[in-house]
Computed example of a mutant assay.
Amino acid sequence: MNTGSVVFEHVSKRFAGFTALPDLSLTVEPGTLVTLLGPSGCGKTTTLRLLAGLEHPTSGRILIGGKDVTHLPANERDVAMVFQSYALFPHMTALDNIMYGLLSSGINKREAQDRARNGLKLVGLEHQGARLPSELSGGQQQRIAVARALVLEPQVLLLDEPLSNLDERLRRRVRTDIRDLQQRLGFTAVYVTHDQEEALAVSDKIIVMKEGDIAQQGAPESLYLTPNSVFIADFMGEANILPCEVEQVEGSEALVRLGSQRYRVRHTAAKTGSAQLSVRPQFITLCQQNGGALRGEVTHSTWLGDHIEYEVATELGSLFIVDAQMEQQHPLATPVAIDFKPQGLALIAG
């Protein structure tokens, strides 16, 4: 499959009285799925629209497969887009929807039919070609939209919040389908979402955006376990931010005192002295009262079937804890001791 890289070189985009992207530079390697992640208004959708040719930059360059496409219209960019609304024609069958873009590009009907049928096979819907969109589930409609884009054999596939209209269980299944398809075919994809779990599940690399800039980028595990700021720690899932003391720095690890205990933790740019620690709630344990790094008292407890969520008041502040131990639920006002698993701790800059 035809696949290409994406490069933004100092791209800015200004609207009347508003700068959406002040100075954006990023690279998407060929054959990778890169997710643009961030809250509403962070610039991720503007970035995707610039790449698609639906908007044009105020300054800077955009390259696809090494070719400067900055001023090219959308139909000359060799990209295809999957929209959150599916954008299927309701009066056309699934097969005809997939064929539409091929016929519009001048391909003869027989070849368009063959490629469309192959597209149906790619997404596991080879027996659904005669159905109308109204006769398909939401997940099937989204897979038809993906097939319609893929049969055009673009250098880059763009996905704009593709799962936002699906329920939670269906989102998990379709995101797995998209990821498996991308890895099997090896195409380049740029994926936009505001859902952190979705980004962690599908991405080779995540680019977290904030106010038009890149806050942090890297592999999903790296961003989750080694956030470089309070914003990233809090945005990439739940995190407790606690004060700590850095006693020693050795390479990529630091010796940190938290409460009465010391831990070796990851960091991006640590210095000795007072610091802040990101603590993931599922890496906090409740233990016997005579152990642990901190003492606390349960102020809130919620049983959720496969885990229990606690809020515990401590001398360092309130802690949110996700406990997979289901045999015993600690009632309100119970005194507890708290300990931390080092793999869930990371020093952050601020």
Rank of each mutant, 00 (worst) to 15 (best):
M1Y: 12
S5A: 09
S5L: 02
S5D: 02
V7I: 14
V7D: 10
F18P: 00
L26M: 13
T32D: 08
L37V: 02
G38P: 02
P39T: 01
S40P: 09
C42M: 12
T47I: 10
H56F: 13
P57H: 08
G65L: 13
H71T: 14
L72F: 04
P73Q: 03
N75V: 11
R77V: 03
R77L: 09
D78F: 05
Q84A: 14
F89D: 05
M92D: 05
G101K: 10
R110N: 15
L122G: 09
V123L: 10
L125M: 04
G129E: 09
G138M: 00
R148G: 02
L150D: 00
Q155V: 07
V156W: 00
V156G: 01
D160M: 03
P162K: 01
S164E: 06
E168F: 11
R171H: 07
I178E: 02
I178A: 02
D180T: 14
R184Q: 15
A189W: 03
V190N: 02
V190D: 01
Y191C: 04
E197C: 07
E198S: 13
A199L: 08
A201M: 07
K205S: 10
I207C: 03
K210R: 15
I214V: 15
S222I: 12
Y224W: 15
F235L: 09
N240T: 06
L242P: 03
C244W: 00
E250F: 11
S252K: 12
R257S: 05
R264I: 08
H267V: 10
K271R: 13
A275T: 05
L277E: 07
V279P: 04
F283S: 06
Q288I: 08
N290P: 00
A293G: 06
E297I: 15
H300A: 15
L304E: 12
G305N: 07
E315S: 15
G317I: 11
S318V: 15
I321N: 00
I321M: 01
V322Y: 11
E327Q: 12
Q328G: 09
A333L: 13
P335R: 13
V336K: 06
V336P: 00
L347K: 04
A349S: 15
